[in-house]
């Protein structure tokens, strides 16, 4: 369980803020994020979960549960198709935890881990949509039109937000 720190309130607030920003940024800057045929999907909520793995240190946040909750909301509110992100987000968190245990995390290795996370999320959500016939795009189209721009966008947000969020977690832990 969470020890009584400010993180107890700070973590869920940050999670939901980033969850909403994913949709709102898409609606506010559609020309930049969704210029045909490319589409950048914003996964700020995953960024928050990944940062929590990196920065929480000794305080145990039940991250897998929170990831499933965020994924469930993502499914119901944004896509309207149950059962994709509710499993994909916990998988990404588990992957990040495994990497965190395997080697020391700093700014650059964290960037690499986040790169892998986004690739896994994009691919799994593509296959999910493919099997239920919500998309007919080919794998090559998916790589060029969706995965590449999404990676570029999300890695940029990682670079911009890494140090501010690290500072925020240091503040919240004490």
């Amino acid at each position: 369980m969470l020890r009584v720190t400010k993180l107890r309130y700070g973590f869920p607030i940050g999670l939901f803020l980033f969850f909403y920003l994913d949709g709102i940024l898409g609606a506010t800057f559609p020309q930049q994020l969704f210029s045909v045929p490319y589409s950048m999907s914003s996964y700020l909520v995953v960024l928050w979960l990944v940062f929590t793995v990196f920065f929480e240190e000794q305080i145990q946040v039940p991250l897998t549960v929170w990831a499933a909750v965020a994924g469930g909301l993502f499914d119901v509110y944004y896509t309207g198709i149950w059962g994709i992100f509710v499993f994909v987000f916990p998988i990404a968190v588990a992957l990040t935890k495994a990497c965190y245990k395997a080697f020391p995390i700093n700014f650059l290795s964290g960037l690499l881990v986040y790169f892998i996370d986004i690739t896994v999320i994009c691919s799994l959500s593509y296959f999910g949509n493919l099997v239920v016939h919500m998309t007919t795009a080919s794998f090559a189209d998916m790589m060029v039109d969706s995965l590449a721009p999404t990676l570029a966008y999300n890695l940029a947000t990682y670079v911009i937000l890494y140090f501010p969020v690290q500072w925020l977690f240091n503040r919240l832990r004490n």
Partner: peptide, 8 residues
């Protein structure tokens, strides 16, 4: 809001 997904 806009769905942050390439498929929807």
């Amino acid at each position: 809001a806009r769905t942050p997904s390439a498929w929807q």
